[in-house]
Design a protein around this nucleic acid. Sequence first.
DNA 1: TGACGCATGTAATCCGTTACATGATTAT
DNA 2: ATAATCATGTAACGGATTACATGCGTCA
Lengths: 205, 205
Amino acid sequence: VLGLLAERPMSGYDLTKHFDESLAGAWSARHSQIYPELARLQEAGLIRVAEEGPRGRKRYTVTEAGLKEVRRWLVATEPDRTSRSEAYMRVFLLWLVEPTDAHEYLRRQAEFHDQNLTRMESQVAALGETTPAERWTRIGLEAGIRHERTLLQWTQWAMGEIRRDLARRRAIERRQAAEADRAAVRPPEPTLPPPAEDQVAPAGL
Amino acid sequence: VLGLLAERPMSGYDLTKHFDESLAGAWSARHSQIYPELARLQEAGLIRVAEEGPRGRKRYTVTEAGLKEVRRWLVATEPDRTSRSEAYMRVFLLWLVEPTDAHEYLRRQAEFHDQNLTRMESQVAALGETTPAERWTRIGLEAGIRHERTLLQWTQWAMGEIRRDLARRRAIERRQAAEADRAAVRPPEPTLPPPAEDQVAPAGL
DNA sequence: TGACGCATGTAATCCGTTACATGATTAT
DNA sequence: ATAATCATGTAACGGATTACATGCGTCA
């Protein structure tokens, strides 16, 4: 919050939107967390109300003490580098479900990464290059774009892996079925696109 | 927890290590969270004690109900896709500190990603390909490896950007200083490696 | 005049971490 | 002996989400 207010004065409402939009992918915060936090920061003398507007709007700025504090935090404390991703963790459990379900899961992941990619690319396009803050927003978004692109490519590779496994399994089942019972009627199999060659080679293989 | 126990019976201690090692990068949990959770899952009939060992060791397995539940969770619920990364978020605030500090920050990030990359690569190397769980662990680690590699490359690109900015700024300062005061003695400037050409081109540029 | 977006707050609850607390087994 | 590792638990606290709650301003 201090860092964001250092760029320009903002209200709690503005901060909330900022977390949901430009900072999505890095951090998020709800208004229910932001408003009490603003009160605490003001109490501590790190921010102050710069302007009051209509509908009770209060726009906050960092004080000198607040600016000093956020700089101290940036240079003197180590970031918590533990990362948590439910979506990523689920991948390790996909062996528990049917290949068609796993494939569907990855398809949605691909969709998600594709949307993020599009959003971030338009954010970069809409960005100036005048202030240092904009310069660093661009550098940060570059990381996000590369990240989303990489994971999008990974989902495509992984879906290909599933299709290959499935094709292999079907071939075996067909062979066995042909040997055991040529005349019996079987229920139709779930439909998935046929295995395709990858555009992207798996890393480390 | 249900998903992990589905692969093989484990104790709370085993689960804790699992979260710190093979599942690092996806999820983490401390023993203080795991033990109460195991008690709750047992109470709910989703797991049961499969074996008791020395030192009070209790090895749990999923019950049929537990297996059903984790499968239901995987196919019927949407993952929470909001991601949080303090380390990534800080990048957007690096304009607040000196370029040398920003550079140092990115250097540590590079170190971190490099370590993760090495760890994950050795994890893949130590992995069999016999069970479905191993198959999916490999697919998951592939995502982690690509992710770490991408961010490692990004840090190198970003450090290059800082060095370029710094070189540009110094050139301007030198020119101004030469014009204004040719004889005055100035303090030595902070040392950073000279700007280098990138191996990796910035995305979208 | 009614819907939508702006705008701010609080309360209950849950999830997760840190710290506290204990003890058995194994290897040096 | 004693240090390291295995092994399990609880308590206090803090951070974050969900739900509850209210009201103004603007535009169709």
